[in-house]
């Protein structure tokens, strides 16, 4: 009973639950046995090479495609059985989208607000706030088709938020945007996360994802190959046992002290740094560095070697070295 309660409690904390999801197009298996849980308030980056199954997964989550089998729940609600309720929980920004000619920004927001049967006064109030949030307040009376791509993208995010959804799903929102528009989009998403929204974003621009997201999922050939908090995924892939010691002089002494330690191995020696692989505890590392300093080595710093998302991506998708 207690376990059941705990599981239910854990389930309540999950915004998106995907279990054993399968989708095939004919003989091609687009998504295979995908299981993923995204907690509330996360900014989740969905990455993978072209054809990995990201967009298919996103379309299934958004109710635009039926899976062959599996379970999807948003905010604890079964997405397949409660399509109407799910639409209230979800805001979707597709990778490519069009706008209507001869429709003003304000009318565009009105149109989508009224699709959720919202009152016109309520739509007006919320759309004013959202247009301010996406920095389009001065474009209310502009025709949508006259906006730049970046503005249209931000307007689409505002449109997706008109009904105050719990989950915002963005498929490649930065594709085709100039650097300034990308920065604005990144700031917007971070602001939204700060407001407590759960955001799922698929993107090819890994450096931006690593700056924005707190958790990631990497897909390859229809399967999820790694998922979780970015630090955890990095640690799982690169390990937590690589250390870089930067120093000015005393290389030989430093190497001698390192070799005296039992659970450490020198990987490489550079002009100003020594890279190590180790299996030591933190106090042992501190004692080793302390011994170096006491032995006259001019240590300018030491840090754990961090991997980046691009290296991680290349490694887990099988193309890394």
């Amino acid at each position: 009973m207690a376990v059941c309660m705990a599981m239910r409690k854990r389930g309540c904390n999950r915004m998106l639950q995907i279990s054993n999801l399968y989708k095939s197009y004919g003989k091609f298996q687009a998504v295979s046995n995908l299981t993923l849980h995204i907690p509330k308030g996360d900014l989740f980056g969905f990455v993978g090479p072209n054809g990995a199954g990201k967009t298919t997964t996103i379309r299934m989550v958004c109710g635009l495609m039926l899976p062959n089998s599996g379970y999807i729940a948003i905010n604890g609600i079964d997405a397949l059985a409660n399509q109407k309720e799910i639409k209230r929980q979800l805001g979707y920004v597709p990778d490519f989208f069009g706008v209507y000619d001869n429709l003003k920004v304000r009318e565009y927001m009105d149109f989508y607000g009224s699709m959720y049967r919202m009152h016109s006064r309520e739509i007006r109030r919320i759309s004013d706030d959202l247009l301010e949030l996406v920095n389009l307040s001065d474009k209310k009376e502009a025709f949508v088709d006259t906006l730049s791509r970046g503005m249209k993208q931000r307007l689409c995010v505002a449109r997706a938020l008109i009904h105050n959804p719990a989950l915002l799903v963005l498929d490649e929102p930065n594709s085709g945007l100039d650097p300034r528009a990308r920065v604005e989009m990144k700031e917007l998403l971070q602001n939204l996360r700060g407001m407590g929204k759960t955001i799922v974003i698929s993107s090819h621009i890994l450096s931006e994802l690593s700056e924005m997201c707190n958790s990631i999922g990497i897909m390859n050939h229809g399967s999820l190959v790694a998922a979780g908090r970015i630090e955890d995924v990095m640690e799982g892939v690169f390990g937590n046992n690589q250390l870089v010691i930067t120093l000015e002089e005393g290389h030989e002494t430093a190497i001698r002290i390192i070799n005296e330690c039992t659970r450490v191995k020198v990987d490489s020696v550079g002009e100003h740094e020594i890279r190590l692989s180790h299996n030591m505890t933190k106090p042992e590392i501190a004692r080793m560095v302390g011994a170096m300093i006491a032995g006259g080595v001019v240590v300018t710093g030491f840090h754990k070697q961090e991997g980046d998302l691009e290296t991680l991506f290349m490694r887990v998708t099988g193309d890394g070295r």
Binding site: C62, G63, K87, Y92, V99
Partner: peptide
């Protein structure tokens, strides 16, 4: 063709 259909299908309209 205008790529507005998917958005329409994710809104509250049946």
């Amino acid at each position: 063709e205008r790529q507005t259909f998917d958005i329409m299908m994710t809104t509250g309209m049946s």
